[in-house]
């Protein structure tokens, strides 16, 4: 067990280093295209201490949104995925998860702009996140804006997550021979599903919690800028618009670190729950 965890951690560190190198090369390429004399290894000189302090504040603000969003996605995505697999033959139940399916194709940055409009018209709030705060309690307004962004992003990501759970894992489980023979022998559907299919799929279901994260991070960046929320996404987009690849590089490294960390967690959980994954040559089969 310890050997498996250490090995996966080592691989994650190698991934992070490789990702930093790739992103650094791309940044240097962009600097070269922009005819900038700066080099990517002189990055530390591009930001003063105040800017770095601002960057760490922005990171905390973005992690707040991500924590709300991803917790919602994992809980509801798994729950709806399992329910939709269990009741996949019921037409009426489709109405329950159809809104999530539709929401996954609505541009989140458009929705947050609508939310700003709704805040002003319906609630009398200032609209975008950089407006004058109506709530005088310290920190509460940040959580309000973070939850607004997090819920909108989660609504789209749940649509992807539940389809991955249903189609990728549980549907394969239902097509196995012993499941069919159990059905032919007259066992109840619910017994077959909860006692066999779901039980066998649970380790693999934990291994896919990171699947939609890169897409969500991309949409988070754009939505933060759209909502004028002071997070990493705004830093990335403003840096890109002002022609500062260093800002994009720094944010992309943080995003890569988050994805690699969540992937590592998914691999750990999958390996701990499933002995075959722990002892096999490749821990996760993508």
């Amino acid at each position: 067990m310890i050997r498996f965890l250490v090995r996966r951690t080592g691989i994650a560190i190698v991934r992070l280093i490789a990702m930093v190198l790739v992103l650094g090369t791309l940044t240097q390429f962009s600097l070269w295209l922009l005819d900038e004399p700066r080099q990517v290894w002189q990055l530390a000189g591009s930001f003063d201490s105040a800017e770095l302090a601002d960057f760490s504040k922005r990171s905390i603000a973005s992690f707040r949104v991500l924590a709300i969003c991803w917790t919602t996605v994992v809980i509801f995505g798994l729950m709806i995925g399992i329910l939709s697999a269990r009741f996949r033959q019921s037409r009426g139940m489709k109405l329950f998860w159809m809104p999530f399916m539709v929401a996954s194709w609505v541009p989140a940055f458009w929705l947050v702009c609508l939310a700003a409009l709704w805040l002003l018209e319906g609630w009398g709030h200032p609209g975008f996140a950089d407006g004058e705060a109506p709530v005088r309690v310290e920190g509460l307004n940040q959580w309000w804006h973070a939850s607004l962004l997090g819920v909108i992003l989660a609504a789209g990501a749940i649509g992807f997550q539940y389809r991955i759970c249903r189609e990728g894992i549980i549907r394969r489980g239902t097509q196995q021979e012993f499941i069919r023979s159990s059905f032919m022998r007259g066992h109840r559907r619910s017994t077959i599903f909860y006692d066999h299919i779901l039980k066998n799929s649970m380790p693999a279901l934990t291994g896919v919690i990171d699947r939609g994260l890169p897409a969500t991070l991309g949409m988070l960046a754009v939505s933060e800028w759209a909502f004028r929320y002071p997070g990493l996404g705004q830093f990335l987009v403003e840096g890109a618009r002002l022609g500062m690849p260093e800002a994009v590089f720094l944010t992309a490294v943080v995003f890569s670190g988050v994805v690699i960390l969540v992937t590592l967690l998914a691999e750990w959980i999958h390996g701990i729950l499933d002995r075959r994954i722990r002892t096999g040559p490749y821990p996760i089969h993508y």
Binding site: M19, L26, L34, L217, V222, V237, A252, S256
Partner: peptide, 13 residues
Amino acid sequence: FTPAFSVLVLIAV
């Protein structure tokens, strides 16, 4: 595990 959108933005800059 590559955040593709950030990479696209980096190239597009």
